[in-house]
Design a protein around this nucleic acid. Structure first.
Length: 219
DNA sequence: CGCCAGGCCGTGT
DNA sequence: ACACGGCATGGC
């Protein structure tokens, strides 16, 4: 039964890997850029995010130091193309403020917290929900955690992953129920943290690649 | 033109 | 605990 779920998940992972190859995520040069991207892409197409990131880079503000000396109004104008720009600007400011106030302005100090402590710290920030927190844990802190997003839910529903678990609809179950279910499946196969990190990194990237591909094919 | 994109939060039941 | 509306831009 659990054996079955694990197999189905592994097959899905292998199939995606065969179709799309290595993904090398997250598309960012630095942890800070990765985190900014995670905020900006909330319910927003990556294309729009790229414009906002390009604005920040061109202004020399795509760093913690760069963001410190920026008024909220200036930040708003730079991230405008990514939408929800007033919220996002305020929330990015709040993130920078946290790092300065509690981690001596060192992003690496925040990211070196134990995994779950990092997750809780991130979740306490305005504008950071589970997906954003987990993205940062996995792709900035390189700790093993499985990210659930809308693509994941749709893919699992379509592929009938966990379909034999009673009352378990990937489209409807609570975020952490789905995350833990996936993590249990892979942790049965290996307990090597670095290996799990690679798997979750690759798997999520493949799921997004598949989701985007499918969306393009549909239009 | 309308719909939606790698969510999150406040409010109401 | 869950449902729903608001947040905003740019591409198709």
């Amino acid at each position: 039964m659990t054996e079955n779920h694990r197999e189905r998940l592994r097959q899905l992972y292998q199939r995606l890997h065969a179709s799309y190859g290595e993904q090398r995520w997250w598309p960012a040069e630095t942890p800070f850029e990765m985190i900014v991207g995670a905020y900006l892409t909330q319910n927003t197409s990556w294309r729009n995010v790229e414009q906002a990131l390009a604005n920040l880079r061109a202004a020399g503000r795509l760093s913690l130091a760069g963001m410190r000396g920026l008024s909220v109004e200036e930040l708003e104008s730079l991230v405008r193309p990514s939408g929800f720009f007033r919220q996002k600007a305020a929330r990015l400011k709040a993130f920078a403020t946290l790092v300065d106030a509690r981690f001596a302005g060192e992003l690496a100090m925040l990211l070196s917290l134990p995994k779950m402590q990092l997750r809780e710290t991130l979740l306490a920030l305005p504008g950071v929900g589970r997906e954003t927190a987990d993205s940062i844990v996995l792709y900035a802190a390189h700790q093993p955690i499985f990210i659930v997003d809308l693509y994941t839910r749709r893919l699992f529903a379509r592929e009938r992953v966990f379909c034999r678990v009673r009352g378990f609809d990937p489209l409807l179950v609570a975020y952490d129920d789905l995350r833990l279910r996936v993590e249990q499946a892979f942790e049965e196969a290996t307990q090597d943290e670095a290996e799990l990190t690679r798997i979750y990194n690759q798997f999520h990237a493949l799921i997004v690649a598949d989701g985007k591909q499918r969306r393009r094919a549909n239009s």
